[in-house]
Amino acid sequence: MTADRRKFTREEPETRRADLIAAVLDLMAEAGPAETTVRAIADAAGLSPGMIRHHFTSKEDLVNAAYEAHMARQIADSERALGAGNARERLRRFVSASLTPPVVDPRAVSLWAAFLHMVRRDPAMRATHEATYLAYRDRLQGLIAAALAEAGRIAGRAELRRLAIACNAVIDGLWLEAGVLPEAFVAGEIETLGLVSVGALLGLDLAGGAA
C-alpha cells in the first residue's frame, strides 16, 4: 500500500466526521434543534444516514461533538490573538478578541441559543458546557493573575476566581448583545466597553485611556 493510499484511508473517517459536525452546526444555526434531524444532517453532509451511527454512537453524540467543536473554536479564536508582549497586553488582546469578529458573530449567537436549549436536559451536553466554560474562564483567570502580578498585586486563588467569574460575565453579556444586535453599536464600541469594564474590575488600564 502506498503512502498516499495509507494517508487517504486514515484521513477519510476524520473528514467524514468533520463533514457531519459542520452539517450539524449549519443546521443548528439556521433551523434550530427541531430541524436538525438525522436525515437533514446526512443530506447536508452528503452522506447516508447510516454514516452517523458509523462515526458516532448516536445523533446525540454527534450533536454534542458539534457543540464541543464550536466552543473549542471560539476559545481558540480568542487565544490566537495573545501573541507576545507583557501580561497586561496579552490580557487586553484576549478580551479584545473575545469581543470582536470572528468570536462575535450573529451565527455564533444562534448556535449558542440552539445548544443552550439542550444543555439542561442532556447530561452529556451539560458536561461539555461546563468543561468549555471552565476552559475559557481558567484561561482568563491565568491571564488576570499574570497581569495583576506584573502590576505588583499578588491575588489569592479565591480572589482570582471571583475576578475571573465577574470579568467573564461582562464579556459574555457584551458578546451576546453585539451578536444579537450588531447594528446597535458603532465600530469598536463593544470592544472598548469590554476593555474599560474588565479593567475597572481589575484596577488595570486595559483600554489605553479610552472612556
Rank of each mutant, 00 (worst) to 15 (best):
A97T: 04
R120F: 14
A87C: 11
P102L: 07
F94S: 01
R120C: 09
L91E: 04
A84F: 11
R88N: 06
M118W: 10
M118I: 15
E130H: 12
R120K: 11
R88K: 09
L111K: 02
A97R: 00
S98N: 05
A113K: 12
S110Q: 11
V119A: 04
S98I: 03
L111P: 00
D105I: 08
E89K: 15
L99V: 04
L116A: 08
A127T: 13
H117R: 08
L99N: 01
L91A: 01
A113N: 10
W112G: 14
L116Q: 13
A84M: 12
A124M: 11
V109E: 10
A84I: 10
T132F: 09
P101N: 01
L111C: 03
S98K: 05
A131Q: 03
N86K: 15
F115L: 01
T100C: 12
A131H: 06
T100K: 13
R107W: 13
T100P: 05
V103C: 13
A97L: 01
F115T: 01
A97S: 02
R107S: 14
W112K: 10
R92Y: 11
A108P: 02
R90C: 05
W112H: 10
A114G: 06
A87V: 12
A97Q: 02
A124D: 15
A113V: 08
M125L: 03
P106I: 15
A124F: 06
V119N: 03
R121F: 13
A114C: 05
P101A: 07
R92S: 07
P102R: 13
A108I: 05
A131M: 07
R92C: 02
V109I: 14
E89F: 10
N86A: 15
D105H: 15
R120A: 15
L99Y: 03
V109K: 12
A113R: 07
D122R: 00
R126N: 10
R126C: 09
N86W: 13
F94H: 06
H129I: 00
L116P: 08
M118F: 14
M125H: 00
A113E: 09
V109L: 09
R120Y: 15
R90H: 06
T132W: 05
S110Y: 14
A97G: 00
P106T: 08
R92D: 05
V119G: 04
L116V: 07
S110E: 11
R93T: 03
R88I: 14
R88G: 12
P102Y: 07
V109F: 09
A108Q: 07
V104T: 14
V119K: 05
A113C: 07
T132I: 01
T128M: 02
L116H: 15
A131F: 03
F115P: 02
R120Q: 14
L116E: 10
V95Y: 11
R107I: 12
L99H: 04
A124Q: 11
F94G: 02
G85V: 09
D105E: 09
W112L: 09
V104K: 02
E130Q: 12
P106A: 07
L91H: 06
A113Q: 13
N86H: 14
R126W: 10
R107L: 11
R88P: 12
V95L: 09
V103N: 04
